[in-house]
């Protein structure tokens, strides 16, 4: 049995191993080392939640603290990657993507196509998502569907430490621009993670459990809630399959379709919104492609279409949870 480590340490380890394996891997971000320009010890922060702590002493030339200039440093990660580096840009909170979006949206994503297949831009952007900390409307969002809407970007959303390490290694090694979303509530989650380097292919869903009645598709933190709901439902004889797509672009459609073909029922759980989001997209694809297998209308369990509230009672009401998932599953069984 492998040792158990936290999600954030799994990310740190993937970063370290990739930087050891490949000298072209660099890390750019705010306080990713910390204490730059002071007379105190560097590596004071390791990012705002300490995820990259310990990397600076190992790779002082390649762990680069930047000014608060997201357009410049995320753009520089893109540009350096188009010139032979394999840059990882840490966008502290995904909510800040508005500041630098063009560098991903019109630049990184489109180089290869616009330039007739000549460009390779192996950049990875690591960024935090997720509500649940009373961090309010500008530090709690999960805007990955906005990235997934852009041809040319890959979107990776791990739900556990093992996947985080393998998927980050795969993202960094991947030759296309990858946006890697880390749910802040998962950082302290522990799980078995092998010490050595490994990768998990991008575009391969993880079937967490199989059950004959309902297919639940869930992402990131929602996977835990789905598991909780499934346990409860199992007591009433309702057996759930849980699929974690792990990447939403590329999406492992086959895994979802083949499961729905077996169960005939679908619930999609997403912490983001239903309108133009991952949940509606999965329901739409399923309806179009395996309509004949459906025994009931697919259900979406998402956040309501409002910004993330600050007050803890409102935030709890805002977030999907096991009870909401359970209710949605029961609805598909009616």
């Amino acid at each position: 049995m492998a040792r158990k480590i936290m999600f954030k340490d799994a990310i740190n380890e993937a970063m370290r191993l990739e930087m050891e394996r490949d000298k072209s891997v660099i890390l750019l971000g705010l306080d990713v080392a910390g204490a730059a320009g002071t007379e105190q010890q560097r590596d004071a922060w390791g990012g705002v939640l300490g995820v990259t702590k310990g990397l600076y002493p190992l790779f002082p030339d390649r762990v680069i603290d930047t000014p608060i200039s997201e357009s410049a440093y995320i753009g520089a990660a893109v540009g350096a990657s188009a010139c032979g580096m394999r840059a990882v840009g840490e966008l502290m909170f995904s909510d800040f993507m508005g500041v630098c979006f063009d560098q991903l949206y019109n630049q990184a994503a489109k180089f290869r196509y616009m330039f007739g297949g000549k460009a390779v831009t192996p950049v990875t952007i690591r960024t935090m998502i997720g509500a649940g900390f009373s961090a309010a409307a500008q530090h709690s969002q999960s805007p990955y569907s906005m990235f997934a809407h852009v041809p040319g970007l890959k979107c990776i959303i791990p739900s556990n430490p093992y996947d985080a390490k393998g998927l980050l290694a795969a993202s960094i090694a991947d030759d296309d621009p990858c946006v890697f979303f880390e749910h802040k509530a998962l950082y302290t989650m522990k799980g078995e993670v092998p010490e050595e380097h490994y990768t998990i292919p991008l575009g391969q869903a993880n079937v967490i459990q199989e059950g004959k009645d309902v297919t639940i598709v869930a992402l990131a933190r929602m996977v835990q809630f789905a598991e909780k709901a499934a346990k409860k439902l199992a007591k009433d004889g309702i057996e759930c399959t849980i699929i974690d797509p792990r990447t939403i672009s590329p999406m492992d459609w086959n895994a979802i379709y083949s499961s729905v073909e077996k169960t005939g029922r679908l619930v999609v759980v997403d912490e983001s919104y239903d309108l133009c989001g991952v949940a509606s997209d999965i329901c739409g694809h399923v309806a179009q492609n395996v309509f004949g297998a459906l025994k009931s209308a697919p259900q979406m369990v998402t956040a309501p279409f409002v910004p993330t509230p600050f007050a803890s009672n409102l935030e709890a009401a805002y977030l999907p949870d096991a009870n909401k998932i359970e209710a949605a599953v029961r609805k598909t069984m009616e």
Partner: peptide
Amino acid sequence: YAESTSTKYSA
């Protein structure tokens, strides 16, 4: 300072 980063470094 900006977080832990000195102004001497970043500006």
